[in-house]
Structures are given as structure tokens and as C-alpha cells.
Design a protein around this nucleic acid. Sequence first.
DNA 1: AAGCGCAGCAACCGCCCAAAC
DNA 2: GGTTTGGGCGGTTGCTGCGCT
Length: 329
Amino acid sequence: MGRAPCCDKANVKKGPWSPEEDAKLKSYIEQNGTGGNWIALPQKIGLKRCGKSCRLRWLNYLRPNIKHGGFSEEEDNIICSLYISIGSRWSIIAAQLPGRTDNDIKNYWNTRLKKKLLGKQRKDNQQARRALKQEAKRVEDGGLGVVSDAFRSVYWPDQQQMTMFDGVHNPPDLHHNSNNDNNNNIDDHASIRKLLIKLGGRFSSDEGTSRASSSVSVMPTQQIYGGDAMNLMQPSFHEGVNSQLMQNPSTGFPTELDEMFQCNTVKLEGLDYFYGTANMIEGNNGSISSASTSMNWTEVSPLIYPTLSASYQGMQQCLLEEPVHHGTQ
DNA sequence: AAGCGCAGCAACCGCCCAAAC
DNA sequence: GGTTTGGGCGGTTGCTGCGCT
């Protein structure tokens, strides 16, 4: 049957917005709001634009407090960490970065961050190959026993990664706000909390205030571990994350990144926990059964356990190391 | 100086989902 | 309960500007 078009395609203008159109749209929305109906809005203000186009223009460019370009290192890290954990859920990622739009982040990722990471990854892979070669030679020479630092650094997850997954059964206490916690921890938790709220998690503000004022209140870990957060999520999100990160860890990632993860043991070590390796039950067809996918991604997601984001420091580091080259290659 | 290729980005397209009817 | 409709989202396209040859 198909869907009726949202607007008369023949009579709508396409392409770049003129300053006049911008001004019209902006002033109308600032005075009257969107009226809850984007489709009808352009007609009201005499714009020959599709309602969806108006919405996009407003959300991405005309809305107050929008930032363009100039992504900070911190923002880079957040984007990378979230991309690794939830994939290309740009709107969710954008929700973690005030003033940023999903479109902006998506473009930024596709044009810069991805390339940066891939560039770094190639370097790492070369380093890994060299280390592997050296190690093989050592073994050949009868030098078994001590693993070289170079080899370990490339192939073994760092200590932080190893310890954080103690959290699978003994999750880090997000309520706990030790004296050692710095502002970054608080910010991390606040972001996580916001994200979980967006995802449908339950965070009582009362509960939050009833605790130490400086601590960030999140869902009791038992609730998280009981699967509440998952159940509250929209099915599409739940399915998407599961199918992308659990059933096939690679699915949903761009091919290059797919290769990148397959090539890099360190990253896989970290991601194993997303995939639920410990509980994996492979079906006859080799796919992971629902029994394993039922292991909540929330249990191990860096969204909940910021320490996992720390495991991503390799990538983070590369963002610092490799300057963006504009138009030079 | 002109042509070419590439990167960055704005905008569109089409699908999905939920609310309204 | 089925259909329609609008909002929202991710993927993709195409334009523009810049750098290199």
C-alpha cells in the first residue's frame, strides 16, 4: 500500500536554507513553539519546505545553544566510548553532549574520529605483529616463560580492564562516592544517570537527594542486575544492542572497524564482556543463543561502569596523538 | 592558473515506532 | 484491532571548499 508522502514533494523547496527562511522559522518557533505539528508548521509560516526539513533545520542549526565544530578531547572520548558500547545510536550519544546534535556527531565520527581510530589501529596492529614475531622467535629459541612487556602491552588487557569485570558479579558501587572520587567521576556518573534516564531507567530524584548530596544517585545495582533497565528499554534498543553486541559482536560496526576489532586482541579482550563470552552458549548454527544474550549488556556497559570507558584509553590516546589532517593525505 | 581529488558538512531519504483515530 | 499519521532516527547523497599536481 505504501505511505502517503508527508508533504507535496513537487511544491517544496529543497537544498540549502536561505537566511530569510531561517529567520522566518526561528522567529516563529521562538514566539509560538512548534505547535506539536511539524508537518503543518511550514504552511503556517509560509515556508515552502517539508515539515521534516523544518524540524531538522531547527534541531540542528537554529535551536539555541547549538555548538558546531571544535570538538574537545573529552567529547571525542565520550563519543568513542559510547560508540563502542552502543554503536551508532547518535541521538543517544548526542544526549550526552550538551549542545551537540546527532547529525553533527554522526558527521564528526564518519569524517574524523573513525579515521583517527583506524589510523591508530593500523599502527597498533603493526606493533602487534612485530611483538608477535619477536615473541615467536623467543619461543623458538627456547625462551618460554617470561612474556615481554612489548608483547603484553599489545595483547593483554590492562589491569583496569581485568579488575573492572570483577564487576560482573560485584559491580562497582555507583552510589559510593569515596573521598578519592574527583569531579570527573561525578561527571561520569551524572552522564550515565542522564543516559539511563533517557533509556528508560528509573532514577528517583528523591532517592538521589536522600543520599549524600555529593553523590550521584543511580538505580540500585540489584535493580540493574535484575534486568530492570533492560526491560524498561524500548524493544528496538534492546534488540539492537543485543543483536549488535551480543549475537554478533561485529555486526553493526562499519567494516573497517569490524576488521579493526577482529585484528586487535586488546580491544576484543575488552569487548568480550559485551559479548558475554563467559556465558556464551553457541547454538548449532554458531550463533549465540538467547541464553547468553540474556546477559544484560547493562551489566558491562561503560554507560554504567565508567571504568570500562577507561579501558578505551588506547583509542583515547590515539585521539591525542594523531592530529586531524584537513585535506592532506 | 586550471583541473582533479578528497574531506567536511548540510540536507535529504526512507524506515521504524508510537500515538491517534 | 487495524489503519493512518507524524516524529524521530540512521544512512546516504551531493554540494562546496581546499589542497595538491
